[in-house]
Design a binder for these strands. Structure first.
Lengths: 167, 167
DNA sequence: TCTCTCCGCTTGCACTCTGCAACCGGTGAG
DNA sequence: CTCACCGGTTGCAGAGTGCAAGCGGAGAGA
């Protein structure tokens, strides 16, 4: 009856779900890149994920309840992937991972901007961002917000790209 | 000249180093379990890591500067593994991973205690813990502290184990 | 000195997972 | 009717994983 978990340690259990090279990359792309379709995730992937791996990960993430899939009624073959509350709550994990990578690994300046803003913004900013994700993915009611965190991150990224090109 | 990184995204770079089932488990055991020797890591592993995998991961982590290895001058064949500043700064990542696993996955109560205390303690407690790790692993000067976080975690864990047994 | 145990690993093997490229049937637009 | 695009699947070679057994060196006891 008991599961085949390696142990009941919460860190271990998280790693059993997320402990591979691609799962968090897919979630990152859906979350920060707003890529909601298979081809988008495949072709706009910064790291060049293979189609079978993407397919497998989307299945796994769906099975674990981190992603949901719904078909667009207008475009029948078009599938829309959405985050769930579980994966939205991975924001702090991704922020900390990004902060660590930014500090110790050769991260490119443009791609580090988002990590920096989220790191410096602290838990309040994460919470705002998570609320926006709930609106975008779970259909939650939008709450009045001075400036969308998502847009703020996107804008900063675009500025960094432009600055990188001109310099 | 450029490296073979999949991309310059800080999250991706972190995953290239830590994105597998075992690396963070090994760091967790050194960090929270104070397992400093190979046999200790092998035999006291909650998840039952295989010896070749452990050997490989220790090499990888050493190569990436997350772990250092030194031989005990008294016991020549005995190797002491230590954390580095880089891996000590993974504390927030591990805490967030633990908090997430505790929230959404079937974590056992005893093993969740540490995760809960660190989660609830917040960044100040993490900083204290990281200072203690610097003393234990980097030979930093101990700073006066009312109660060692390490001992606090250990004590809470032992109490939870005892409570679990008696109930 | 001889033996016994423990030390950090290494080796061999079967099996699975990964990454790449080619390919698939269904669908909507022109 | 055609054609590009949709979310995938398939085949294959090579890399990674998990298990069990074994290795030489060292420390301890007799």
């Amino acid at each position: 009856m008991e599961s085949e978990h390696r142990s009941g340690c919460p860190i271990n259990l998280s790693l059993e779900v997320l402990g591979d090279s691609w799962s968090l990359i897919v979630i990152r792309d859906i979350m920060f890149g707003d890529r909601r379709h298979y081809r988008q995730l495949l072709n706009e992937s910064e790291e060049g994920i293979a189609s079978n791996i993407l397919s497998d990960r989307l299945k796994r993430l769906t099975a674990h309840g981190l992603v949901t899939k719904q078909s667009d009624p207008a475009h029948k073959q078009r599938q829309l992937y959405s985050l769930t509350e579980q994966s939205i709550q991975l924001v702090p994990v991704l922020v900390q991972l990004g902060a660590w990578g930014r500090k110790f690994l050769p991260a490119s300046p443009e791609l580090s901007i988002r990590a920096r803003i989220l790191d410096e913004g602290g838990p309040e900013l994460w919470a705002d961002f998570m609320d926006e994700l709930r609106v975008m993915h779970l259909g939650a009611e939008p709450r009045a917000s001075a400036e969308s965190v998502f847009e703020k991150l996107e804008k900063a990224y675009q500025e960094a790209v432009a600055a990188g090109r001109s310099s």
